[in-house]
Every structure is written in C-alpha cells, then in structure tokens.
C-alpha cells in the first residue's frame, strides 16, 4: 500500500530527526511514501472548538485520499486525532455532509476509504517482525529500554484500534527485534504529561517525573517513544526538569525509528541521535564489561 506521509506540525522544526529517521528506515524497508502538504491535524484546537478540529482533520483526510490509499503518521496525537475524526465522520453523516460542502470549493471530498496508520502499525503489520529481524544487521547490545506506548494511539481503543489497550505488545516486540531489552515497568501505559504543557506546567512536569522515576526504578537506561509530543516532553522538557531539579537522574529518550535504524546499520549521526537535548547516542555503543556483569547479576 502506498502511504501519504503525515509529519504533523511539530516535527519539521522541533523534532526533524524523527522524520529523517522514519524516512531512512521506511525507504530501507521499501515502504513507499507520498508527500502531500497537509495542515494541522486539529488536535491542538480540539480543546476550543470541536468542529474546527473535525474540519481540520477531515481536510487532511480528503487531501490524503486524493493521492494515496493510506495515511501514515509518526505522531500518536495526530494518529488519535485523525482516527477519531474518521470515526466521527462515519458515525455522523450530518457532520460529514456539512464538512464536505465546506471542502467542495477546494475540490476536496472525504469519502471514508482512507486507511489511517501509525508508523509502528505499518512496521508491525505491513512489514512484519520476521522481515524486520532479517534486516537487522547490527543488533544492539541489549540496552535496557522502557517502552512508552502513548495514550492517543492506545485509547479509546474502539476508535484507535492500535493494540490491546490493557496489555499492548507490538511496541515491545518491535523494540526487542532490534536487540534491545524491553523492561517491565508499571507506568508504561500512562500519559507523558505533555497535553498540559503551557496550561499547567507544574502538573505536566510532575506527571513526566513520575514516569521517568518509575522507568529508572525498573532499571531502564533509555526511554523509547514513537510520538512527537512524547519526545518533546521526554527530551526538551526533561532537560528543563533536570535544570530545575525536578528529577536528578536523566533518562534519555529515543525515537523508535532511530533505534531500528541503528540496528539496521545506519550511523547514529545520520539518525540525528546527537541532536537531542539529552544525548542518547550511547545506545549504539557496545556494553562495557562491568555493566554486563551488573545486568546479569541483577537479572539473576
């Protein structure tokens, strides 16, 4: 299937390495992407005006339908937002008609045939774990990774249909395919706190701090995310939290395509690992001897 690539608003300027890494990995796995100039998915405006959100999302879906049969996004908030809009438009024909009449002057029409996917779904379902493992030339030396699922892809599950909402596994299995170890940690399905950023910064940071502490307690060395906003929260905001003394130990965050890219043999520089606020490049390095001993003794 050919996918229209929906980067979302924040990636091009704030997290460009996410798009770069995704494109590198996708092209190595022969997943065709089409470029369309999309607008905002509508997620940020949903707090103010539902219809504006729906119109923004629907405009994107109609744009994507023009050039591809599917849409893929690396951002879980964009994913949730677009899935929710598609669901609403299928349930509410009155809204769909109203929006289509507003889209008509732009020669756009949303019919509802578009497949909306997150990059993890494309990797897991379209490519498959076996095919990915076959491309892993340079398996990572068992870095201990806390997988952060991301709320807006997971829930509400009857709309997002991403994975089992109570016990999801696809992200863990994709991470383990690279040679990394996915640690078990209690807060893996909780929110990163970013939706409250600039609305209640204190609470936003507190939620992030709880998660970071939980992951560190479980022995994680890195966080792995696959959402633009989660990455901003665990990279840029975490750095501010460290400077403010909210937390003491940093837990660098890696974007999944970077992790996969490393295991496929791309350099950490090309994957943009050195552009993070909290440097995560060490994930690519072989484990030191004494660390090996420690991790073995810990697991024993």
């Amino acid at each position: 299937m050919k996918y229209a690539f929906f980067a979302g608003c924040k990636i091009p300027y704030y997290v460009p390495q996410y798009e770069i890494a995704t494109r590198m990995v996708f092209s190595a796995l022969d997943i065709g992407l089409t470029d369309v100039e999309f607008n905002c998915c509508g997620y940020p405006v949903r707090n103010l005006d539902f219809y504006s959100y729906l119109y923004s999302a629907a405009r994107n879906l109609a744009l994507a339908e023009k050039s591809a049969s599917g849409l893929v996004t690396p951002c879980k908030c964009c994913y949730g937002s677009l899935r929710h809009a598609a669901y609403m438009l299928s349930e509410r024909t009155d809204l769909k008609d109203r929006i289509n009449s507003q889209l008509a002057p732009l020669e756009l029409k949303y019919t509802g045939t578009l497949e909306i996917r997150h990059i993890l779904q494309v990797l897991f379902h379209d490519v498959g774990l076996e095919a990915i493992k076959a491309r892993v030339k340079n398996p990572l030396d068992a870095p201990r990774v806390a997988v952060h699922y991301g709320c807006h892809a997971l829930r509400p599950s009857r709309i997002t249909d991403f994975d089992d909402p109570d016990n999801p596994t696809i992200f863990d299995r994709l991470v383990e395919a690279t040679g990394a170890v996915s640690v078990k940690w209690p807060m893996r399905l909780d929110c990163c706190g970013n939706p409250l950023w600039q609305k209640n910064d204190r609470l936003s940071r507190f939620l992030a701090a709880k998660k970071i502490t939980s992951a560190l307690d479980a022995g994680a060395e890195y966080l792995c995310v696959s959402c633009t906003y989660c990455q901003i929260q665990f990279d840029q905001v975490q750095q501010a939290m460290l400077e403010a003394g909210d937390i003491e130990t940093p837990l660098p965050s890696i974007l999944y395509p970077q992790l996969l890219g490393l295991s496929m043999g791309f350099s950490s520089k090309r994957l943009g690992l050195d552009t993070h606020h909290l440097n995560a490049s060490s994930v690519a390095l072989p484990r030191k001897k004494e660390e090996d001993v420690r991790s073995v003794s810990e697991s024993a």
Binding site: C151, H152, R155, P156, P165, C191, K199, N200, L207
Partner: peptide, 21 residues
C-alpha cells in the same frame, strides 16, 4: 476539567461506556 491530560484512561475503563474524556 482544566487539568485533564486527555489520556482517555477513564473512557477506556468505564463499564457503562460513558465517553468521559
């Protein structure tokens, strides 16, 4: 209402299918 993080945990868990979030 204003400190909701929109994580949809409530809506997912509701036994009565209330669309809380």
């Amino acid at each position: 209402l204003w400190d909701c993080v929109t994580c949809y945990a409530c809506q997912e868990a509701c036994p009565q299918n209330v669309r809380v979030t």
